[in-house]
Structures are given as structure tokens and as C-alpha cells.
Design a protein around this nucleic acid. Structure first.
Lengths: 338, 338
DNA sequence: CTGTTAGCGCATTCAT
DNA sequence: ATGAATGCGCTAACAG
């Protein structure tokens, strides 16, 4: 292993000088700087990050805790975070909680032990629980992402879905839909009850009462399939289904297929979140989406500022989602029960 | 920050003793061991990984370089790797090359600079290029994964697709398919030409010559759509399409839709790789898949052994893929050109 | 069995 | 502008 010391000898300078050029310290004679540069190149010297971390008391690593790597939106977010972090000289540990609160907690603990300089969490647990995890070892700078609204305890990047949801509700109502099912996540990730309430509110303002049997939460694929089936059967079946978590669209499609129904003739479908699949199947799905890259950049800006110790002028970063019309929403006419 | 020294004082033992209990050294009096344990708990001591790394000259981190996080198979692999690695006391840096050779190279370089103890690479670059990257800084233990066949330069985990491909070919031929299009990745990841040749071989043994216009490679969504369109048009259009990369199934579906064709009446489809979507759309897709978790475990076993310095008795780990029949393959009768 | 000691590679302070 | 010296937190070798 070639160390800073080897470089120093090769360049006929002291160890301190090498360190200085490495860290861009101005007070170094150009001649020396150049000699060091040459020595580094010739020896193929690479700084030892463990030694740097130990000395600087900084790991130059960040932690990103996301709810589910199988969600394409999450992947987009992850990539954007890595890009921004990389440009700022950080590497990032990605931890996938798989929608499991306990796993999320243990991931946060592990990242804290690894002494990450900052944490980005898209929480599955209640905020208070996240707070407890993060505080366990003296509160590292932390930003919560993918929330639906800002919270008091942390700086956050949140997505305001109200405009998109209102537009979507308007669209459905104008096409005659009266019985709209809302299938939402049982976990906090993906909006959960908050998102359901937002949708219900938008619908209610347009005279659609609902909820009750039509609203169902679920935690995994099988439950989601059952929930969709339930909404699709019975005397007063739904004419439209809003799926609150993109990865659970497939079981909903399966339920519709198994119920011998067709999109959008018999039932309309809107997904929260998007993917190539949603855009490519027949018919392509209407979706409510947010620009995850912009979201990630906003969050990273907050985090980097927090790490640098600057007080945050704006504690929260707001994005807005949009409603994209494709081919999965049609008139409610197909339903004979109306 | 509470250090080993604080623990030592609190437990009235020396620094060395604390270190010993921490590392499970046997020669420690039970009384001392217990006192140290108590002190650790009371102080909430957590070892500093940077200091450990520096001293041990081991980072206890692994690097996993994968071609595309948007592929569900890759995510499954990633999760399995993290599980096994975690149990062995390693954390893993996941780097997504996004099917880009240059990005893969720079990721490998970054991981090497981070001084990972081992590397798992699902290569997009030619093997020789990977070899060059990895050798740049004195060859860290490296295992190549998701290959189609073992290579000389590295220990590998590979997937033998021959049995599944032969079964699939048999299925298609028995249903009267004569014009089969093979859409494969232009990059090495996902099989590329190797997979195409395997398929062509299987088909040829059953008397189906082909290739030529019917075989097309692509690097991104738009190209794949065009390739599918081309196969679907013309006087002698394909009656079956094999899609070599799962994430590129959506554009193929779009092309089929845009060509006003139906699956499986007009055209049969088989995908390499699987997902909830493939299983849930109408009709559900036939697929060729491999158990990624088992694959990952095999690869990790090789890597951990290599890291420990043991000579590898078996340098390669073999998995076998299977052909899953669902609803996307039917008789070739729908094609009037036959 | 346990205390003491010597670095691991580097950034930084203090002289010069 | 630069060399020398110090110590970050920890492990391992050595001497008791």
C-alpha cells in the first residue's frame, strides 16, 4: 500500500506538504505542488478513506433509507440522490426497508454505527419512531423525504398532491363515476391514510360520498388482490379504482382480469406512481406522479446545508405532483348498477 | 464521542482488555468481561469503524456493481446479497451502472478507492475491461455474477439457460411457430449475443432457421420499440417474440399494441426475467427465470471464501433457469402469412 | 489473564 | 512556505 509518506519521499518534500496539496491548501509553492502531483501519479497513490475519516471525524458517507427498491419511483430517487451526493464527494449507503418498520429501524441503527455524516429517510415508521432511532446516537443531520406534508421534527422534502388529486377527482366525476374505490397502503410509505383522506376530500367536495366498503388498505400483494376483488364484486361495485402504491397495481390488474372486467369500459384505474409498464400495457394507465429527481435534489440541498452546519433558512422543500391522462379512465356507463 | 478508553476507565480495566472482549478474545476473566459489558451498555459505546478499518486494514465493506436497478431481478439479487453480507458482518455499497460501460468502470474505481474488501460485479463491459479496472489497484477479491457461462479470469456465478431455452423452443415449434424474433440486449448485461446464439441454436436443432431480419439488438427503450415494430411488420412478420431483457418488455408490448396485434392470438411473447407486472397483465407472460436469491448466495459463498484467503476448490457456481408457461404463447395459426 | 506500547494513514498545529 | 510533531480510536504484539 502506497501512503502519503511514500509520496513525500519520492517528491523530496515533507509529509505535511503532500497533505496540503492533497487538500488544496493555497500555501504551497508551485514547484512543490507539481513535484507532489508527479509523485502521486507515478506511485498511483490513493488516499486511504479510513485514515481520512478517523482524522477528520467525518466519514464522507451518507445513508439513504428507502421503503422499497422494487418501486421504480424509489429507484429514480435513489439514482438522483447518488448523483448529487457523488458530485458533492459523498458515497451513499442505500438501505431498503422493504416496507418493514423493524427493518427500517435496524437499518438506521446500522448506518449510525457506520458513522454516516447525514441521513435521508423515506419513512415507513411513524415520525416519532424515526426520531427515536435517529436520536439514539446523538442526532446526525437528517432529512425526511417523500412525505406528503412537512413535519415539525425534521427538515423534509414533501410532495403536495392536492392539485393533482383534485384534477383527477374532477376527471372521474365528470365522467359519471360515483363509486370510487381507494386502495391504499397500510404502511405509512406511499401515503397511506393521509393520501386516502386527501382523495376522499376531493371527491366529497364534488358530492361523492364514499369510503366505507370502498376504501381498503393492505400491506402486501395478496391482500391487495383481495381488496381489489372485494371492491369489484358485490351489488354496488366500484366503477373506478385508485391504487395508492404503484407496485401494487399488478395484483389489481389481476383482480380485474379474474373478475372478467375490462379497463376502462367496465372499470377505470388510476395509479399513484408510474413505470414503463404502466405506460405500455393496454390500455396505458392514468397516473399521479412527481418528479423524483427534482425531489431528490431539493432534499439533498437541505441535507448538505445541514451537514455544513449552516442554519436552514427554509426547513422544507415542496414538490407538486401531476395527473397524467392516458387510456385507463373512461365513462362510468359500463356499470349496470348505476 | 465515547471511545474504548472511556469504557476502560468506567470498567476499571485497561484499554487492551476492552478491546479483547470486543473482539471475543477468549483469554479474559469473566468478571472483567462482565464489567466491560456493563460499561459499554451504560455509556452506549459503539466502535468507530474508521479506526477499526485503519488498524485492521480491512473495511468490512463490499461493493456490488449491478447493471440496472430498474430490473426487478437485479433488485432481488441485491437484496439477497445484502442479507448474506449482513449476516457475515459486511455492509455493501451498491453501484448501479445503468447499462453504461463507462459508468461501470468508474464505479469499480470508486469502490476500490473506498477500499472495499471484495467486489461482486454483474458486468456490462467485456470481461477483459473489467479485469483491467479491477487490477488498477492490486486486485481485490472479485466474483462475477449473472454470467451466462464461466470465464477464466474470475470466479463466477453463472446461469445455465440451455435447458429452459430448449424447452421454450420446443414449445414454440410444437405450436407451429416458424418465424421467431429474438430481441436482445446490445450490451453484455442480460445475455446479449450469447443468449441470442443459444436461442438460435435451440431453434435450429428443430429445423427453424432464422436470424437475419428477425434478430435485433438494442440499447434503450426507443430502439427496442423500433426493433419490435420491425419484427412485427413486413410481409413475413414474426409469430413469436423472445425478449432478452425484462425491462424492455414494455416497449415490445407497446409495439404490439400499436401494430393492432393481440397476444397470443397474433403473436406469442416470452420474456427473459420476470416481475409482478409480467405475471399480472393480460395475458400473463411466459418467462425464462432463475432463482436470484440462490444465485446470490452461491456468489457470496465464493466471495467470502476468496476474501478469507482460502483457495477456492470450486471456482464457479452454476444455477439453472426454468421456463414458466403462463398465457402469452399460443398456436401460430393467427398469422396469415404462414 | 492483563496492562503497556506501538503504530495503522492522515490532517493539523506549531515552529521555523 | 514547509518540516516536525501530535493524536484521531483502535488492534495486536509483548511483557509481565
Amino acid at each position: 500500500m502506497v501512503t502519503i509518506r511514500d509520496v513525500a519521499e519520492r517528491a523530496n518534500v515533507s509529509l505535511g506538504t503532500v497533505s496540503r496539496v492533497l487538500n488544496g491548501h493555497p500555501a504551497v509553492r508551485p514547484v512543490a505542488r507539481e513535484a507532489v502531483g508527479r509523485a502521486i501519479a507515478e506511485l498511483g497513490y490513493v488516499p486511504n478513506p479510513a485514515a481520512q475519516s478517523l482524522r477528520r471525524m467525518k466519514s464522507h458517507a451518507l445513508g439513504l433509507v428507502i421503503p422499497d427498491l422494487l418501486s421504480p419511483m424509489t429507484v429514480t430517487l435513489t439514482r438522483a440522490v447518488e448523483d448529487v451526493a457523488g458530485r458533492a464527494g459523498y458515497t451513499v449507503f442505500v438501505a431498503d426497508s422493504r416496507l418493514d418498520e423493524g427493518l427500517e429501524a435496524s437499518h438506521i441503527a446500522r448506518l449510525l454505527e457506520r458513522r454516516v455524516d447525514g441521513l435521508l429517510v423515506s419513512p415507513v415508521q411513524p415520525i416519532a419512531a424515526v426520531e427515536r432511532c435517529v436520536s439514539k446516537m446523538g442526532r446526525v443531520p437528517t432529512v425526511l423525504v417523500q412525505l406528503r406534508k412537512p413535519v415539525r421534527e425534521f427538515p423534509t422534502a414533501f410532495v403536495d398532491e392536492q392539485p393533482a388529486v383534485y384534477e383527477c377527482a374532477e376527471h372521474l366525476v365528470s365522467l359519471g363515476h360515483r363509486r370510487v374505490a381507494v386502495l391504499h397502503s397500510g404502511s405509512r410509505a406511499g401515503g397511506g391514510r393521509f393520501r386516502r383522506d386527501l382523495i376522499r376530500g376531493a371527491l366529497a367536495e364534488r358530492g361523492i360520498t364514499g369510503g366505507g366498503d370502498l376504501d381498503r388498505s393492505f400491506a402486501e400483494t395478496g391482500e391487495c388482490y383481495a381488496a381489489a376483488m372485494a371492491a369489484l364484486n358485490g351489488p354496488e361495485r366500484a366503477t373506478a379504482i385508485l391504487v395508492g402504491v404503484h407496485k401494487f397495481v399488478p395484483p389489481v390488474l389481476r383482480a380485474i382480469r379474474d373478475a372478467n372486467l375490462r379497463i376502462p369500459d367496465d372499470v377505470s384505474v388510476v395509479s399513484f406512481g408510474d413505470s414503463d409498464w404502466a405506460e405500455s400495457i393496454s390500455p396505458p394507465l392514468n397516473v399521479v406522479v412527481v418528479d423524483q429527481a427534482a425531489h431528490a435534489e431539493g432534499a439533498m440541498a437541505l441535507l448538505l446545508k445541514a451537514i455544513s452546519g449552516e442554519p436552514l433558512r427554509e426547513r422544507h422543500f415542496r414538490s407538486e405532483s401531476i395527473y397524467v391522462r392516458r387510456g385507463s379512465v373512461g365513462p362510468a356507463g359500463g356499470c349496470v348498477n348505476d
